[in-house]
C-alpha cells in the first residue's frame, strides 16, 4: 500500500488524499511526502497508523526530506508504527505542545485514563474541554464496543491555537461499519451502512426505537451534529465508502437533519477499500455555544427522527373509490 502526505491534507481534501492511496499490494505500507511542506490532519495519521498495524511495523516505512514535516510526524508518534527510525531525538518529541500523539486504547479503563489525561495536554479550559471529552468518549467507546478490533482504537488530536480549533481522529482496524450494521440492518453498500450509522435512533444492535439497555443509536448523530454546529467538517471512512459533512454556511440558518444525506456533503462508494473505520472531525471552540444548549438543539432533531420513524410504521386508512 502506498500513501502520500501533502501540504494540504485537511479533512476537506480527504478525497484527493485517497486518490493517492494505492492498495494494490497490501503486504507493505510505504508513505511518501511532499518535498516542501507537510500539513497533515490527525485523520491521515490515524489512518496511516492503522494501516501500519495491519501490515506490521517491519513492513511499514516513510520516505521524507521535509525537516519540519518530519519533526511534526515524529511529535505525533507516527514513527512508532514504522520501521523507519525517527530522525528526531526522543528528547525533542516531548508532549509539551498542544497535541495528543497517536495512542492506542484497548479497554474502557484505558479510555477513562486517556480522557482524564488529555485535557491537560491540550491546555483547554474546563468548559471547552467538555465537548472534546464528550466526542472522544463517544467515538472511542464505539470502537471498543462495535468494531471487534483486536488492535483497539487509534486516537490522535491537535489543538490549533490561532484558529482555536481541535482536530481529532479515531481509527480502528476492525470489521468496518458495513459488517457492524449488517447484523441487524443488512445495508447493501458501505455507504448505506454509514448512512444508517449516522441516522439518529438507528443502532447496530437492535431495530427497536429507543435501543437496548446498552445502546440507543445516538452517538454518531450527536458527534456529526457537534461538528456541524461548530461549523466544521466531519468525516467517516469505512470499507469503500467516504462520507464528508461539509462546513455549514454561517449565512444560513442552522438546521439539523436526521438524514445525513440531506446535509451538505460529499459521499462516495468507490474509495480504496479500507477494512476498518476512520472517524475524524474538527471542533471550533470559539463557535461553540453552551454545551447544554447545543445538546438541547440536537436532541430536538433526535426526538423528531424517532417520532417520524414510528409514524412510518403506523397503519393508514384503507381508502377506496367506487364507481357508484
Amino acid at each position: 500500500m502506498k500513501l502520500h502526505f501533502s501540504g494540504q491534507d485537511n479533512l476537506r481534501n480527504f478525497k484527493q488524499f485517497l486518490s493517492t492511496f494505492d492498495t494494490t499490494d497490501s503486504s507493505f505500507l510505504s508513505i511518501s511526502t511532499d518535498k516542501k511542506r507537510i500539513a497533515v490532519h490527525p485523520a491521515y495519521l490515524a489512518l496511516s497508523a492503522a494501516l501500519a498495524i495491519k501490515v506490521g511495523k517491519d513492513n511499514s516505512t516513510i520516505t521524507s526530506d521535509t525537516p519540519d514535516g518530519i519533526q511534526y510526524l515524529s511529535q505525533m508518534g507516527l514513527y512508532d508504527f514504522l520501521s523507519t527510525p525517527s530522525p528526531t531525538p526522543s528528547s525533542d518529541t516531548e508532549q509539551s505542545g498542544r497535541y495528543i500523539p497517536l495512542r492506542i486504547i484497548k479497554t474502557a479503563k484505558e479510555q477513562s485514563a486517556f480522557i482524564a489525561d488529555f485535557v491537560p495536554l491540550l491546555h483547554l479550559p474546563e468548559d471547552q474541554s467538555r465537548i472534546v471529552r464528550y466526542v472522544i468518549g463517544e467515538l472511542v467507546r464505539n470502537v471498543l464496543e462495535h468494531s471487534c478490533s483486536k488492535d483497539g482504537a487509534i486516537v490522535t488530536a491537535r489543538y490549533y491555537e490561532k484558529s482555536h480549533k481541535v482536530s481529532l481522529a479515531i481509527c480502528d482496524t476492525g470489521i468496518g461499519i458495513w459488517h457492524s450494521m449488517s447484523k441487524i440492518w443488512h445495508p447493501k453498500t458501505d455507504l448505506d451502512a454509514i448512512k444508517l450509522a449516522l441516522t439518529p435512533g438507528i443502532s447496530g444492535t437492535t431495530k427497536k426505537e429507543g435501543g437496548t439497555f446498552e445502546n440507543a443509536g445516538a452517538g454518531l448523530f450527536y458527534v456529526r451534529s457537534i461538528a456541524k454546529t461548530t461549523r466544521n467538517y466531519f468525516l467517516v471512512y469505512s470499507g469503500k465508502a467516504e462520507y464528508l459533512l461539509y462546513k455549514w454556511d454561517k449565512r444560513l440558518k442552522l438546521r439539523y437533519t436526521a438524514d445525513p444525506f440531506k446535509e451538505e456533503h460529499f459521499a462516495t462508494n468507490s474509495a480504496p477499500d479500507f477494512p476498518g473505520t476512520l472517524v475524524a472531525l474538527d471542533i471550533s471552540l470559539d463557535d461553540t455555544p453552551e454545551f447544554n444548549e447545543l445538546l438541547h438543539k440536537i436532541s430536538t432533531t433526535y426526538d423528531e427522527a424517532i417520532r417520524e420513524r414510528r409514524r412510518q410504521k403506523f397503519y393508514t386508512p384503507n381508502f377506496e373509490r367506487s364507481n357508484r
Binding site: E126, R130, R133, Y134, G137, E138, R141, G210, G211, T212, F213, E214, N215, A216, A218, G219, Y222, F291, L295
Partner: peptide, 15 residues
C-alpha cells in the same frame, strides 16, 4: 461530575 456522554447515561438508566 463535569459532564457525561449520552451513551453513558443511557447505559446507566435505560434498563
Amino acid at each position: 461530575i463535569n459532564g457525561a456522554t449520552q451513551s453513558f447515561i443511557h447505559a446507566l438508566i435505560a434498563e
